[in-house]
Computed example of a mutant assay.
Amino acid sequence: MPVPKSEFDALPPCDFYTPAELLENEQMYTVYEIARLLQGLDPDADIDRETEDILLDWAIPWIMTNADELVVAEPRDEDEPGYYGLKE
């Protein structure tokens, strides 16, 4: 059910990082690492599975929205996810 804006103390703008602000130019990242970075966490932060699932809900659309600025690499092993990085 919708909630009135007046019930909140602050309403900052809904700004997301650009790929260049979030990712290092010479590095490739998994969707899991990007999900952590979008929340200001270290890419290797230890988080529980439930939290990781929620963070992925943010990361996957971010990757799709910013696809023109990203490159993708196939997984190195079949049990590993793919990698994303900045286009040069």
Rank of each mutant, 00 (worst) to 15 (best):
L38W: 10
P4K: 03
D46C: 02
V3F: 00
L23K: 06
G40L: 10
P75F: 03
D68Y: 10
E69K: 15
Y29E: 03
E7H: 03
P2E: 12
L56Y: 03
A45N: 04
P61R: 07
L56N: 09
K87L: 10
D46A: 06
D77E: 06
E21F: 15
D42E: 08
M1A: 10
K87V: 06
Y29H: 05
D57W: 00
L55Y: 10
M1H: 07
D57M: 06
Y83K: 07
D68T: 14
R36N: 04
G82D: 15
M64A: 10
F16A: 09
P2G: 13
W62C: 13
I54P: 03
Q27F: 00
D53R: 08
D68L: 12
E50A: 04
V72Q: 15
T51L: 06
E21S: 15
T18S: 14
E33F: 01
T30S: 15
L38M: 11
R36M: 06
L11C: 02
P13S: 01
G40E: 07
L56R: 03
D57H: 00
L41C: 09
V3Q: 02
T30H: 08
A67H: 12
I54V: 14
P13Q: 01
P43D: 00
Q27Y: 01
Q39G: 08
K87S: 08
P61W: 05
T65R: 11
P19G: 09
Y17F: 13
L38C: 09
L41D: 09
Q39T: 07
W58E: 09
Y84E: 07
E80G: 02
T65V: 13
E69N: 15
D79R: 12
E88Y: 14
V72Y: 14
T30K: 05
I54N: 11
R49G: 08
I54T: 14
L37K: 12
C14R: 09
T51R: 05
L55S: 04
M64K: 13
A73K: 15
V3G: 02
E50V: 04
E21R: 14
D9I: 04
P75I: 06
Q39W: 15
Y17K: 10
I63S: 01
V31L: 07
V31H: 03
D48T: 01
P12T: 00
I63F: 07
D68V: 13
L11N: 00
L70N: 11
S6R: 12
T65Q: 13
E33V: 01
K5M: 09
P61Q: 11
P75D: 08
E74Q: 07
P12I: 02
E78Y: 11
P13W: 00
E69T: 14
F16V: 07
A20D: 14
